[in-house]
């Protein structure tokens, strides 16, 4: 479904991604871990199409077509969803209105009829219950004044409503309390399906107890330095990133 080949990207003069290779097939869940500043969020934004980053080399194929030529909204319409590490506030725009507008935009892109309001509300109610969200959240402005955990839940709600093909969840677990973590993870798990792929970016093994990944990758200084199955996450939890240092080129250089 997703094929990333030798992807290099920079912001201003700084090269942040320095040759990422990654293949994600439909039905798979991949976890990406790695130290702060290693480029995890950057990778997610480059997949989403954020214009602040310039791709200098490599390619990204999504179901066989090149993603890098598409506009942000076009990628979204094709089924790419990103749950933000820092969700954005939009004052004065109700959550409900926002979600419906987003869904309708995507439907328009596919020349499908607009969603029926009653159907929309019905599905919305279901998903909110699943995520333990209070009804009042829908009337409030998008993310405005939401607590950290509420924002993260709201991201997952949007994902559940939009039903993307590829979801990239950037540190959705940070800021969630223990109960919320389980609820959100359950929400993500219900979306697991043979047609859908999920990439979870996280710092903590804990999330991976609930959302069990098929693969775990470690990103350091803009490259994937290690890939493995779920046991890699356990190993990291135990030993820290230190044990990978030998694999990181600049750390190796610094050690000399």
């Amino acid at each position: 479904m997703l094929e990333i080949k030798d992807l290099h990207a920079r912001c201003d003069a700084t090269e942040i991604l320095r040759g990422i290779n990654l293949q994600v097939r439909a039905g798979e869940v991949h976890a990406i871990m790695g130290p702060n500043g290693s480029g995890k969020s950057t990778l997610a934004h480059v997949l989403a199409g954020r214009e602040d980053y310039e791709v200098t080399q490599g390619e990204v194929l999504f179901n066989g077509t090149s993603l890098l030529d598409m506009e942000v909204e076009q990628r979204a319409a094709e089924g790419i969803f990103m749950a933000y590490q820092y969700p954005v506030e939009i004052p004065g725009v109700s959550n409900k209105y926002f979600l419906k507008a987003a869904m309708n935009s995507i439907r328009k892109h596919h020349k499908q009829p607009l969603i029926d309001t009653m159907d929309f509300l019905k599905v919305l109610k279901e998903k909110m219950q699943l995520l333990g969200m209070d009804k009042s959240m829908m009337e409030r402005s998008v993310n405005e004044g939401f607590s950290g955990g509420e924002k993260k839940r709201n991201e997952i709600l949007q994902m559940a409503m939009l039903q993307p093909k590829l979801a990239v969840l950037d540190e959705t677990d940070s800021g969630l309390d223990i109960d919320a973590l389980r609820i959100v993870a359950d929400g993500v798990n219900t979306l697991r399906s043979p047609e859908r792929a999920i990439i979870v970016v996280t710092h903590y093994q804990r999330l991976l107890d609930y959302i069990v990944p098929d693969y775990v990758h470690v990103l350091a200084e803009g490259r994937i330095v290690r890939s493995g199955d779920k046991t890699l996450a356990l190993e990291l939890e135990e030993k820290g990133y230190g044990f990978l240092e030998a694999l990181s080129p600049s750390a190796a250089a610094a050690a000399v």
Binding site: A76, I90, A101, I106, H109
Partner: peptide, 10 residues
């Protein structure tokens, strides 16, 4: 804000 909306398809 614009980027966030666009990522959702708008």
């Amino acid at each position: 804000q614009i980027y966030y909306c666009r990522q959702r398809g708008l």
